[in-house]
Nucleic acid binder design. Structure first.
Length: 489
RNA sequence: GGCCCCAUGGUCAAGCGGUCAAGACAUCGCCCUUUCACGGCGGUAACCCGAGUUCGAACCUCGGUGGGGUCACCA
């Protein structure tokens, strides 16, 4: 396999044009989005155009609202297309179902050119072609038909499809993929697949070629499932006498070692991640890294930085497993970078959804910014404000700080008396009060702080230290909880 | 099953014939003038197997194994 380098400028004879061509069959899958991202980055990196095309030739799988989802995802992700259904720059329409007459015209033209032929075989005959593996390779039966016979059947109104006419005999079709290098497939291994269905709609095999050519697409960037059928598409370009585009195939994103990330994997779609409190830029950043690595190995990058650093030789050829853990980490990094106000604004819906009511969430947000990876972690972090009851006494125990139940009980007792007459209820004063109380009683301040924090929340991991928790809870609630905790030890 | 493609720690990955085989996530430990977190420092952990080419192979070749894709009037 020969490994191609990055695009040399002298190879770019035509303006770079890439496209993203999703089919409106549901939500926006992460793997699909990544393909769009790479097509976008490649175009922008090379000063070219990024085109959106809707591939809806399969009416059976069409899902209502899916087109809108494609638009909104692209907007949120920051991938603005230069051309698309709502931005016609003269290559439209950009929705395949609206291009129907075009495909028929080109299919007929291809028949004239010898690259395709009419086929009238019925389902029964096709079924009978199955071999021991159930593979039904078409036998070019209708290629034998004379022009007169074809015309007669057509005049009769017999249903037909148009099939690609793969050359017979030896020979192979090959191309050089920007990511995979040389790929070739023998003619003998290709089938005369259907180009135009009996309903007059094209199959993907045909529509993508006609559209890519008509829309001036110079670089075809798509999933690796097309790797081995691409030689066939190239034959189509050749038959038409069209210039072949350059291809860049992308390996799939896996759910685990053997399963592809599929639409059935509920969490694998963009909308869902957004709803769970992932930031669009974090998602984009993460998926860009799933299968691509910049020269300098940077990880956290803005879209603009990624475009700047984008190069095809950094794209990996093997599949990668989606790791939500790492995406969470990256998202956390983006969260920490937010201004306090921005974090509060974005987190507000999650605070509102928590069980805690009536607290100063703006203040709590300050504490949470460095403590959550995704916004939907917020409710579980603040629920202790509303829910406080019996908890496991063992969480008081801390060997290194020498905290046992006896020390815990004493710490709480000391704290109660130190706090009871305190009027200035701020974090700073509270902290100093705890420290002073510890010193006055010959205890380590960590012993007090550790115990109070737990006594106040009933949790081992909390959104802040003892003084911060006390400040948020307020004097009355703080004392109430300390007294309760004291009574339980 | 035929054909196409892939193979570095648990995960993402750097590596392009000579490296003590980077870095990040996760994990573990330590530090943060003894609270949670943040942060800092450090540890554990990898070239699928077998031949060949070469003075020398994670890198090149072949075979095996494993995995993915494809073989639709789906895209």
């Amino acid at each position: 396999m020969s490994r191609p380098g990055a695009i040399m400028s002298d190879n770019v004879t035509r303006r770079v044009r890439t496209r993203f061509a999703p089919s409106p069959t549901g939500f926006m899958h992460i793997g699909n989005l990544r393909t769009g991202l790479y097509a976008y980055m490649f175009a922008k990196k090379n000063g070219g155009d990024f085109i959106l095309r809707i591939e809806d030739t399969d009416q059976e799988r069409y899902v209502e609202g899916a087109v809108e989802k494609i638009y909104s995802t692209l907007v949120k992700a920051g991938l603005d297309y230069d051309e698309g259904p709502d931005k016609d720059k003269g290559f439209g329409p950009y929705v395949q179902s609206e291009r129907k007459p075009l495909y028929k015209e080109y299919a007929e033209k291809l028949v004239e050119l010898g690259g395709a032929y009419y086929c009238f075989c019925d389902k029964e005959r096709l079924e009978s072609l199955a071999d021991e593996n159930g593979v039904k390779k078409y036998d070019k039966h209708c290629l034998q038909l004379s022009r007169e016979e074809v015309d007669a059947k057509l005049a009769e109104g017999k249903p037909y499809v148009i099939r690609q006419n793969i050359p017979q005999g030896e020979g192979e079709s090959s191309y050089n993929d920007l990511v995979f290098g040389d790929v070739s497939v023998a003619y003998a291994d290709m089938e005369d697949t259907i180009l135009l269905k009996s309903d007059g709609m094209p199959t993907y095999n045909f529509a993508n070629v006609v559209d890519d050519h008509l829309m001036g697409i110079t670089y075809v960037i798509r999933g690796s499932e097309y790797l081995s059928s691409t030689p066939k598409y190239n034959l189509l370009y050749d038959s038409f006498g069209w210039e072949r585009p350059v291809y860049m195939h992308l390996s799939p994103i896996m759910k685990d070692a053997t399963r592809k990330l599929s639409k059935r994997f509920g969490d694998a779609n963009f909308e869902d991640f957004i709803a769970r409190g992932f930031l669009p830029q974090a998602i984009i950043n993460y998926i860009a890294l799933l299968g691509w690595c910049p020269k300098d190995n940077r990880e956290k990058m803005t879209l603009a930085e990624m475009i700047e650093a984008f190069s095809t030789d950094g794209i990996s050829i093997s599949a990668s497993i989606f790791d939500e853990m790492k995406m969470r980490w990256l998202n956390g990094e983006y969260l920490k970078e937010l201004s306090d106000d921005e974090f509060y604004r974005l987190g507000k819906p999650y605070f509102d959804a928590s069980k805690a009511k009536g607290y100063d969430f703006k203040k709590i947000a300050l504490l949470l910014k460095t403590r959550v990876d995704i916004l939907s972690d917020i409710p579980s972090k603040v629920d202790f404000l509303a829910e406080y009851s019996e908890f496991d006494q063992n969480i008081y125990l801390h060997q290194k700080m020498k905290v046992d139940l006896e020390v815990a009980k004493k710490s709480i007792e000391i704290s109660i008396s130190a706090l009871e007459n305190l009027t200035d209820w701020t974090n700073q004063v509270l902290f100093e009060t705890f420290v002073a109380a510890a010193e006055a009683n010959a205890m380590k301040k960590g012993q007090i702080l550790w115990v109070v924090r737990i006594a106040l929340t009933g949790q081992l991991v909390t959104p802040g230290g003892a003084s911060e928790m006390a400040e948020i809870l307020g004097k009355a609630e703080t004392l109430k909880r300390l007294k309760f905790a004291f009574s339980r030890i």
